[in-house]
Amino acid sequence: MQLMIQTFHKYSGDEGDKYTLSRSELKNAQDKEAVDRVMGDLDANNDGEVDFTEFIILVGALTVACNDFFLEFNEKQEKKK
């Protein structure tokens, strides 16, 4: 949890509101097309910024997706045995 909080605030503090991520702050790690898709998906209230709650929704969704992937991967590995 501490790492997620630190990561969010590492990027959110670069400009403007230090408690939200702007498009340009997200661009530090993404290309423009990817940022537009991410912002569209994460910015639930359409204010042009991603707050910590919206960010955590992404983290949760990624965690579920990774869990599903590894469950499926493990099942395939067990079938090979």
Rank of each mutant, 00 (worst) to 15 (best):
D47A: 05
D14T: 15
A29C: 13
S12V: 10
Q30C: 13
M39P: 07
D36G: 06
L26D: 01
V35Q: 02
G40R: 07
E15Q: 11
A29K: 13
L26G: 05
G48F: 03
S24E: 15
D31R: 08
S22N: 13
S12E: 01
S22Y: 12
V35P: 07
K18Q: 09
G48A: 07
G48N: 02
D31H: 12
D31Y: 04
N45W: 05
L42A: 09
V50L: 02
D43Q: 00
A29Y: 08
G16N: 02
D51Y: 04
G48V: 07
E49I: 11
G40H: 13
N46P: 02
K32V: 12
E49L: 07
L26S: 06
R37G: 08
L26P: 05
D31F: 03
D51T: 04
V35R: 02
N28E: 08
G48S: 03
G40S: 11
A29R: 14
E33G: 15
E49N: 07
K18A: 05
Q30M: 12
T20F: 03
D47K: 00
Q30D: 04
A29L: 14
K18G: 13
D31C: 11
N45D: 06
V50G: 01
L26M: 15
S12Y: 03
N46A: 08
D51H: 05
E25P: 07
L26R: 00
V38L: 12
D51L: 01
L21Q: 03
L21H: 04
M39E: 00
N45V: 02
V38Q: 00
G40V: 11
S22T: 15
D14L: 15
Y19A: 11
D17N: 12
G48H: 01
D51S: 08
E33Q: 09
G40C: 09
V38I: 15
R37L: 14
N46M: 03
V50P: 05
M39H: 03
M39V: 13
L26V: 11
A34K: 12
G16T: 04
Y19T: 15
S12L: 06
G16Q: 00
N45T: 01
N46K: 13
D36E: 10
G48T: 01
G13R: 10
D31I: 09
D17P: 06
G16F: 01
A29M: 14
Q30V: 15
Q30R: 05
D51W: 05
K27P: 04
R23H: 13
G48P: 03
